[in-house]
Design a protein around this nucleic acid. Sequence first.
RNA 1: CGGGGUGUAGCUCAGCUUGGCUAGAGCGCUACGUUCGGGACGUAGAGGUCGCAGGUUCAAAUCCUGUCACCCCGACCA
Length: 508
Amino acid sequence: MAKKAKTAISPTREEDYPEWYQQVIRAADLAEISPVRGCMVIKPWGWAIWENMQRELDRMFKETGHENAYFPLFIPMSYLEKEAEHVEGFAKECAVVTHHRLEPNADGDGLTPAGPLEEPLIVRPTSETIIGVMYAKWIQSYRDLPILINQWANVVRWEMRTRMFLRTAEFLWQEGHTAHATRQEALDETRLMLDVYARFAEEFMAMPVIKGEKTADERFPGAVQTLSIEAMMQDRKALQAGTSHFLGQNFSRAQDMTFQNQEGEEEFCWTTSWGVSTRLVGALIMTHSDDDGLVLPPRLAPKHVVILPICRSDEDRATVLPYCESLKQDLAKQTFAERPVEVMIDDRDLRGGEKNWYHIKRGVPLRVEVGPKDIAKNGVFVGRRDTGEKSPAGRDEFVTNIGRTLESIQENLFARALKLREDNTRPIGDLEEFKAFFTAKNTKKPEIHGGFASCHFVEDPAVLELLKKLKVTIRCVPLAADDESAPEGTCIFTGQPTRQRGIFAKAY
RNA sequence: CGGGGUGUAGCUCAGCUUGGCUAGAGCGCUACGUUCGGGACGUAGAGGUCGCAGGUUCAAAUCCUGUCACCCCGACCA
């Protein structure tokens, strides 16, 4: 007999956060590790979440003037060699294609690669180079600019250690690549897309983020400036959720991407690139889920409401099922976030409790039980995933209020996540306090500790060395704090005077 | 690529130190019955060339050698 567990997920977040994360994914049936090293299979429920993310992001990209296109998976090795810093950054983790066919082995058992390529191809770890080559062909005049293109694609980075959604060898993402006539225009674009990401994270994922600039050592290989959004997960570690890079003229120089300006002079383009990946699904999981499994913000949930018919007999079925069907119809006519409410009926022949837990673990925002007793009162019995509240409601009242209820769940999740971040963010002006903040009491099995520390600092090799020892990273220099009026302070590591303040945290 | 560990049923694992009959458990799965408004129970079943290749032995999941894969800790990272 199965012991009645207190929580649906074991271990709990407190007991073992990384293991909890894996178990949530499994319990919600989002994805599964595949037989292919470092690669995962995204299952229907996980894919549906990604599709919703894509839909909203794609809409936002288009609203800001971008178009979609598609570039090849393979990139000639020589392309990668053009931008020195870029190669340095990605060379260590490239999948390389060296042959174009297979032949039977001499002993007739198995296959062996044959037909070596004259020039090896790499599987794109990102597409700056191939896209740059194409842009160079497309751009002659300032009239050809700007080019504002996005692509939805898969990329491969041969990571040593992988974790589902957070870091896999192959992952899905979108990468925007733009080319502009002026530096300022490219800078504006970089910032615009960061704002799009931040808005998406906060409004759709209900995940508060800090917008900031990366320090030199955390910058995208080849970029002049890297902006990112950083979120705090429930174990108080930071997760970089999206990046927007100002590439200056580094890539356009390397790829000879030039245009003639209005004065007839030849100039290099100013380019940007920006991306978010399936990592966002991981961020979503770690931001909201609890010890009973996944919790989905309504704006990204594949289903908003699941109706659970309670039938004890065939006679019950005859009345309950039609009632559920009509409830579904009525709910589907309602809207939430300018879209129809998504409803499903789960009439599988399973026990009530089992079905209930199934949907709890998958994070469906609202569960509605409908049985003969409810029907007699023309009511429903509603369970809210975010708060765990369960209460009876009148059928019509429930239907009319559905949009508002979902909105309140969305807001509650955001507020809860924001509170977690605020409770665990603090300014630190003293090195000893800084060390204590980031040191677990239990050295063998570190408990959840630390958070975001906001500190004055200067960029210095000695600082990086110390941070490395503590396993702490500079997440970013928040954009809001980056102005002339920022208060003067002293670097907590070197004692030098500085206005620069950064967010420090352990990170994924 | 350094240090440690693990490969046995769909999943999680026991058995290995000290070789021995038909290789086990829990969960899951199938059938039937009793159940059914928060994770049911009973009975009966299906399911394994013990990662792979050699070796030692009358006999190998167990001992030895090799090999592959995966996991954890480092280095690296959206």
